[in-house]
C-alpha cells in the first residue's frame, strides 16, 4: 500500500516570542514494513540544526527560529510504501536493549487494577506472543474508545478507572500491563490511514510495542483491536507519549500558545 501523508502543526502565540527550538522525530522508521518514497519536513523560516539517529533507531532533527515570532509551524509531507508484517518490527536497527523498556514512567505506572487486569489476562497464555495478544485484548475491552474524556496527562491507571480514552490511553495501559508481567513494552507514535471499515480515529496515531522473545518487537493497537498493518506508518518510540512525541518544542517568551493540527493520511493510486 502506498500511503500519502500531509501533516501541518501550527503553534500560535498571543505575544511575540524571543525565539523557538524544536526537536523533531517526524521521520518514518526504517524497517521491512516501510519504504520511504519521498519525505519532507520543513519549518518555515526555521534554521535546520543537527540530525542523527538515536539508539532506538529514530531519526531526530533539531530546528530553531529567531525571534520575534508569533507563529511556528511544522510541515510534513511524503509518501511511504507499506506492507503488512502483522505488527512485527522486522529489520529495524537499534542499540537500546529490550530490557531498558521494563522501566515505568509516571503515565505507565500500574495500580492494583492494572495489575489485576494483567494477571487475569496473562493467565492461561500458551506462549509470550499469546500473552501479548491477551493483554492487548484485555485493554481493548477495559477502555472504550471515546475522545474528549481524557487529556494529555491522563495516566494509564486513571484511564482504566474511567473505562474510556483515546489511543494514547490504550497504549499507556498496555505498556503498564505488560510491565506487570515483566514484558518490555514501549510507546510508538505514527500515522494511521483510516479506511471505511475502521473506527474514525485521528490520523496522528499511537500504539504500543511489546517485546516477544524470539520474535522481537511486536506492535499492538489496543484502540483498534489489531496489530499494525499496511495502514500504519511508524515514526518513533519512547517510554510514554511524551518520550515518543513526534514534536518537542519550546518557545521563549510570555505569549500564550495555541495549537492547530491538520493531518491527512490517504492512499495513493498505484
Amino acid at each position: 500500500m502506498i500511503l500519502t501523508v500531509s501533516h501541518a502543526t501550527t503553534y500560535r502565540y498571543s505575544a511575540p516570542m524571543r525565539g523557538a527550538v524544536q526537536s523533531l522525530r517526524l521521520f518514518p522508521a526504517r524497517f521491512e514494513g516501510q519504504n520511504v518514497l519521498d519525505w519532507q519536513v520543513e519549518v518555515p523560516s526555521g534554521i535546520r540544526g543537527g540530525s542523527f539517529r538515536d539508539g532506538a533507531g529514530d531519526k531526530i532533527e533539531g530546528w530553531s527560529l529567531r525571534g520575534p515570532i508569533t507563529e511556528v509551524s511544522v510541515h510534513v509531507s511524503g509518501r511511504v510504501e507499506t506492507q503488512d508484517l502483522h505488527g512485527v518490527l522486522r529489520g529495524h536497527r537499534e542499540v537500546v536493549p529490550a530490557a531498558a523498556y521494563l522501566r515505568t514512567s509516571p503515565p505507565t505506572e500500574a495500580d492494583a487494577a492494572l495489575s489485576d487486569l494483567a494477571v487475569a489476562a496473562g493467565a492461561g497464555a500458551q506462549d509470550l506472543l499469546d500473552r501479548a495478544h491477551r493483554l492487548a485484548a484485555a485493554v481493548t475491552a477495559a477502555i472504550v474508545y471515546r475522545p474528549g474524556v481524557t487529556h494529555e496527562h491522563t495516566t494509564a491507571a486513571e484511564a482504566l478507572a474511567l473505562g474510556e480514552g483515546v489511543c494514547q490511553d490504550h497504549a499507556h495501559a498496555l505498556i503498564a500491563a505488560a510491565h506487570v508481567l515483566d514484558m518490555p513494552a514501549r510507546y510508538v507514535s505514527g500515522y494511521l490511514f483510516s479506511d471505511a471499515q475502521g473506527a474514525a480515529h485521528e490520523a496522528a496515531h499511537a500504539w504500543a510495542e511489546l517485546w516477544v522473545e524470539g520474535l522481537g518487537w511486536v506492535g499492538f493497537d489496543a484502540a483498534n483491536a489489531c496489530c499494525p498493518d499496511a495502514r500504519y506508518i511508524r515514526l518513533g518510540s519512547g517510554f510514554d507519549a511524551r518520550d515518543a512525541a513526534p514534536i518537542r518544542g519550546l518557545a521563549l517568551g510570555e505569549g500564550l500558545e495555541s495549537l492547530d493540527v491538520a493531518v491527512a493520511v490517504g492512499q495513493a493510486q498505484q
Binding site: 527550538v21 524544536q22 526537536s23 540544526g49 543537527g50 540530525s51 542523527f52 538515536d54 531526530i60 532533527e61 533539531g62 530553531s64 519550546l250 521563549l252
Partner: peptide, 10 residues
C-alpha cells in the same frame, strides 16, 4: 533547550 540534539549530532 535543544542542547541534547546538538550533542548527539556531534
Amino acid at each position: 533547550p535543544g542542547l541534547m540534539d546538538v550533542y548527539r549530532s556531534g
